[in-house]
Structure formats: C-alpha cells, structure tokens
Amino acid sequence: MSSASLNVEIRRIRDLAPGIREFSLSRTDGDDFPVYSGGSHIVLSLPLGERTHRNPYSLLGDPTDRKTWRVAVRKQEDSRGGSRWLHEQAREGMRIDIAAPVNLFALNRLGRRHILVAGGIGITPILSQARELARLGADFEVHYAYRAPEYGVFVDELEALAPGRIHHYVQSRREQIEFSSLLAGRPLGTHFYICGPGGMVAASMNAGKALGWPESHLHSEQFLAPTGGEPFDVKLTASGKAFTVPSDLSLLEAIEQQGVDAPYLCRGGACGQCELEVVDASGELIHHDLYLSAEERASGKKIMPCVSRLKGGCLTLNL
C-alpha cells in the first residue's frame, strides 16, 4: 500500500566520498517529475534476490528540477542489503521503482531565520532545504559536521547557494558543534532543523529545550534502518495469517511477504503511517521507532512494524 510509484532509470552514479555514492534518476516514461518541497524523501524499491527491499532516501537536488532527481547513499556497515546493493550491484541504466515524495521535514515558511544543521550524510535533506530557502530569499545558515575533509560531500554546491553562510565542523580536526551556544540568543521566530546521527540530534534537542525553545521551532529527521534481531512469531487477526519473522527481515517486510497489504510511508520509524494495533504480545516489544510517545510505548498497544520487533514469544496484531 505505497503511494503512487514511478519507474525510474539510474542515469548516473558518482562516487562522492569513501562509502558515499550519488544516484541521478530519470523517469522511464519520459514525463517530468512532480515538484517536491525541500526536506522530502522517496522510497526506493531495490531488487535483492527474490525479495524487494525498500529504503527511504532524501531528495537532495534542486526541487524545481523536473528531469532529474538525485539521492546520495552511504554504505551502511551493518547493511541488511539495501545500501550494499546500491553500492555494489547498481549500475547506470538499471531501472527501479520509487514511491512519490513525502515530506516529514518541511520548512516553516513563517520563520524569520533558519538554522540548518547536518551531520554526515544528513546533509541530503538539508541541501534541498537550503536550495528552497535560497530561492525564497530567506535568512538562513548551514552548519555541517563531517568526519574528515574528504567526507564533506556537496560543500561546493552549498557554498554556491549561500556564500559565507556555510559553517564546517570537521571531526578529524576536533571541531564540533556546541549546540548550547549555537542556539543561544537567537531572535524570536528562528527555526532549527537537524538531520544527523541520533546522539547529535538528541544533544541539539536537549540544548534547545534547556534554552526555552518550543517544540514547534525544533525540527529533526532521522531514518532508522531496521536492525534485524531474533526471530519471533506473528498472528494477524483480520487476515488470519500466522508466520515467523526471520532475523533478517523487518516485521513489515515479513507481513508483506505474506501478501498482506500493510500501510507504510517512510519505512524508517519516522512518519507513523505503518502503526499497527497490538492485540497481544507474549514477549517484550522492542520499539526502535522515533514516532510513538513514551506513554504509547508503555501502553503496549501499538507498534511500528517498519523498525520494531518482539523479543521472544508471539505477537498478535489487528491486521
């Protein structure tokens, strides 16, 4: 039950940095892509052997470029296949399906100033947001942290967009972003956006809250890769299926393999679309998502099958 899917051809593959590749995509039917908003992502369907693997990636190019969409992919060390396939198997000329863009990381256009922060490959949605802000003539600045100079992908594009407003923090030079000073003394109406590793995002949110920033001005995006884990049993009450989720499949993927149409959008624990009702769980729910509140987790009534699992026993879902 994905949103409308498009068939695209991989037109160009570029190695940007060790373990980071950029893919340029064009529609195979020759039509223009729709316009998207800065911060949007698409879901790529990747043909991994007999099963399809779906991964979300932020669109990073110019939102008004209707011919080419670009994504950048970092090879995950603990990849279950998606990013590894893109790094090792994907070739120019191959065709894949993608789902139309969804934006869970939109700009607030009423903001008077925008602080964009990227950690590593988190630069991808930040780049499309920066393009949109530059086009709008908005007041913005970018703070970009990366491991070593050679990992600073897209710095040229960023510098061209906002000369003098791009700040670099290179870990190998022991530079890091001090969020309490970055966020202090900012004028009313400032918005903060961050995409990066979990620890970095959490540190920035904590600094913002301590300085009195309201939630409506603190925006973050993280996509989680399903981690795999111990196998567990599942029963679906509405569709009458019973099966085992193997260790290398997510719950959502296992449900799809049974031919059951489950809702999803981001497949990365961020959007909340795939939420399922837990009827019974004879084991511990292992929540990995970024969506459910602490109360919802404690209730034991909900699970996000794209990234979360059960530890031991059997999980009964209303699906």
Partner: peptide, 30 residues
C-alpha cells in the same frame, strides 16, 4: 530571543492586535 513566551491579557481587540504583531515576528502558537 528564542525561549521567550508571550502572554496577552485584556480585551479581545487589544490582545489580538498584539497577537497580530507577534505573528509578524514568526511567533508560533506554543
């Protein structure tokens, strides 16, 4: 600065004119 909370108390005419002013500074409902 960010971290500021705004409280508007009085007749509706006055507080909503003040609220419109706050809107121009990008103040959100929370």
């Amino acid at each position: 600065q960010m971290g500021t909370r705004i409280y508007l108390a009085g007749a509706e005419d006055a507080i909503w004119q003040a609220s419109q002013l706050a809107d121009t500074f990008g103040v959100s409902r929370d």
